[in-house]
Design a protein around this nucleic acid. Sequence first.
DNA 1: TATATTTGCATAATTAGTTATGTAATTAAT
DNA 2: ATTAATTACATAACTAATTATGCAAATATA
Lengths: 318, 318
Amino acid sequence: MDLFKKTGKMALGSRLRLFTTRITDDAAKIYDWYHIDFTPKWFPVFFILAEDVPKTITELANEIGHSQPSVSKIIKEMIGAGLVNENQTSTDKRRNVVALSDKGREMSERLVLQCADVDAAIDGVISEAHHNLWEALEEWEYLLDHKSLLKRVQEQRKLRERKDVEIVEYQEKYQGAFKSLNEEWISTYFEIEEADRKALDNPKSYILDKGGKIFVALYKNEPVGVCSLIKMDDANYEYELAKMAVSPAIQGKSIGWLLGLAVVNAAKELGASKLYLESNTELKPAINLYHKLGFKKIVNRSTPYARCNIQMELTLIN
Amino acid sequence: MDLFKKTGKMALGSRLRLFTTRITDDAAKIYDWYHIDFTPKWFPVFFILAEDVPKTITELANEIGHSQPSVSKIIKEMIGAGLVNENQTSTDKRRNVVALSDKGREMSERLVLQCADVDAAIDGVISEAHHNLWEALEEWEYLLDHKSLLKRVQEQRKLRERKDVEIVEYQEKYQGAFKSLNEEWISTYFEIEEADRKALDNPKSYILDKGGKIFVALYKNEPVGVCSLIKMDDANYEYELAKMAVSPAIQGKSIGWLLGLAVVNAAKELGASKLYLESNTELKPAINLYHKLGFKKIVNRSTPYARCNIQMELTLIN
DNA sequence: TATATTTGCATAATTAGTTATGTAATTAAT
DNA sequence: ATTAATTACATAACTAATTATGCAAATATA
């Protein structure tokens, strides 16, 4: 298929499907040529039963990796072909214990030679090829058991998007973004308070000049998130993490996490021993993020914000 | 799947099927995760249309290697999803020319990033694996185009069966087989004649002592075929190939061919320049075999056998 | 020009699997 | 000893492909 040279690996599934039908079609022809009245799809079930241990439908399904109804149907067909007997003795009347019939056992013997020929033929292809398909399948099964394709794609996306994300220090030109990003989420969930307005309108005098810091997350060079480290006027805490805001349009790119890390690192560099924050339990993703950053809930602090119903701290052991 | 360690390569088809569904299921989850309303089975058709050249149903089917009804259905679904427009201008009213809609083109752009991530993820698996699945598939497609799996299995069977076949020179103990194998086919098609009886009862005096040879084909050490090289008493021909008989139970194992070769080679070794035989056109497989050995039909020879209606010769250019 | 053949496609029926569902038999829990 | 939960399995409905079939349009042929 020339197509797959162009599509890239995205079409792996399609390519596999096409290839699989090709192999299965040939398998059917092979049974035919050996004058063996047999269907490729019976093979896995038949193979297990050829070990001559009676099995239930469900046991067979588990061993061959099919669904139970699939085995149910296959067994029905094989009974029709006289290869299998059902309802072998069992005290449990729910179970349908099946085993090869005499005709089945006889067919099993006849299949041995065919199996040997097919095995040799496939080994032939393998030896002609540079890349071993059989081994590759085994490896892929193992690797995907370990980490699914979905998971791997998710990681790739993160990796790609991280490349587009940059955390920079505040500059005058980001004042608009600093204000609007914060106003967006505050007004969505709560009311904007006087304390907010002061800080958002005058970040320089209210945050930076007092010894705080503001970080801006740029996505493709556009500001999409902000977070500040605010110097506190308190005996217990020197710094507060506050005014964290990420554009809702750009969720799932770890921007909150990166901003949080930047603030925590800045606090460490400034020699802070603890970091404080206040928030609201309604904001579940935010609380989750704070937990991930290592913050723990504390109690009994006063706050100028009405919306605050949870307070947290992070101990920075340098 | 542990099963496949036991079954051997015979279960390649089953293994591939299982693996394919696994990949396809994950692919569906991936589209989902990207919030793209798309089905893996649309991908090949979509990919072709994304080149922005309108195509007919049949053209698409050929390019992606599906049947025409399959594409017909896929297109119907994609029209339903608003990704494709049908009945683009065509003078030929049978043709259904389809192309991406604006929504389809937009989706194509969104898919680019996802494709890149999937590609990278699959490349990741490939780099973790020792055997390259993608390359292996490409090689197998090529190798099976060149020679099908069926053909390869047929060859393996021949090879296996040849190992059980041995051509040996006549010994006294094979006299019974020499007689009965010949009597079997002669009496099936014709009458046993006096000339037959003499040679079959006394191979030593009638064939060997006159400077001829007899070869016996053993299958698993049992005599299943015979053929003789008989010294002739004729100005034109020194040797005749005769009394070729193969047990009907053991057809298709090239035993006739091997016996014929043995006789021809013996004739060459004895320095014969031509080899003669007579037969009956009723015996089509035999005549075919003689042709394959290089014999050509000749005319106007007398023969002691009533059943003979064709005569052939082989020129042995050493 | 009329007729036969070929082509393009939709629709129907089939295949080999899947989930979803219902029911009887068994086991666990009160 | 009931009742609730679980289990084993068959059956039904769905899925993504396939072949088979039929019909209209276009092309070739007489």
